[in-house]
Amino acid sequence: MLRIEHLAVSYGRAKVLTDLSLNVEQGEIVALLGGNGVGKTTTLKAVSGLVRPRGGRITFEGRPITGLPTHTIAQMGIAHCPEGRRLFGGMTVEDNLLLGAVTRAAREKQRDGLERIFELFPILLERRKQHAGLLSGGQQQMVAIGRALMADPRLLILDEPSLGLAPKVVTEVFEVLQSVRDTGVTVLLVEQNVAQALGMADRGYVIEQGEIALQGEAQALLDDEELQKAYLGI
């Protein structure tokens, strides 16, 4: 579904990604792991068009998307749930969700989309008329994921969905991501919570020094203590 080949991204003179390649198959959950500042977020931004690569190629369902405008990539079926949630705190939960219906097809099915989100996150149905800024961190993360899903994407990319959440809430969020995959949505996930991410994912990639240092089946990565110490810090 998604193929990244020899991706290179710089911010000014600072080279963040130098030669990164990975692929995501339809129906998978793939975890992208690594330490702070290694380029995980930059990889997601390159996929969704928020940064322009200086080299490499990205294809989605066989179509090149490298350097395309963000709105074009969204229309093609990729939704990006950013780090930090980025909600409009003074707007209601429902209005925040409706902002995610960015494609024509999604706008035509807004009410059906809301029903799906409220089935995934029943608490949001109770809070639908409440300002998003008044929600707990976990509930805000649910709104952020729900907003991305309102676009009815085929590929959902998420950046640090567990950031700042209590352990119990983290478990709930990851359970929802499993449910999202069960509906047919493919997931590419950046996550600092290595154990949780690999416990849910099918496969994992580890970034080091701007490229993929390690890849494999999620359970194999989770079970290898030497690899954990060398690359994952656990």
Rank of each mutant, 00 (worst) to 15 (best):
G34Y: 07
V173Q: 00
A148N: 06
Q196K: 15
L134Q: 15
R52E: 14
L7M: 00
L189G: 03
K45H: 09
S179A: 15
R116D: 13
A79G: 07
L17M: 09
I117T: 01
S162N: 09
G199F: 10
A101K: 08
R3N: 14
T41G: 08
P161E: 13
V30Y: 08
R107S: 10
V169H: 02
R203E: 04
R86K: 14
E119F: 05
H6E: 13
L177H: 03
V206A: 07
A151V: 03
G113L: 00
E108W: 00
D95Y: 05
Q215P: 03
T92Y: 11
R13V: 10
L188I: 07
L198V: 10
S10D: 13
L32A: 06
L98K: 15
V51F: 07
E211D: 12
L114T: 11
D152Y: 02
R3C: 08
V169Y: 01
G37C: 07
L198R: 02
R147N: 09
G100H: 05
L227G: 13
Q219Y: 06
T183A: 11
R13H: 07
A79N: 06
M150L: 12
V194C: 08
L98E: 09
L50W: 08
V102M: 14
R147E: 09
L165I: 02
I117G: 02
Q75V: 01
Y11V: 03
L214Q: 08
I207T: 11
K229H: 13
G90E: 15
L114K: 10
C81Y: 02
F60R: 00
A230K: 15
D112S: 14
P122S: 09
E191N: 02
R107F: 05
L188W: 03
A46T: 00
P53M: 07
N96Y: 07
V93K: 01
R116Y: 08
L214G: 06
E175F: 01
E172F: 00
G216Q: 08
V143E: 03
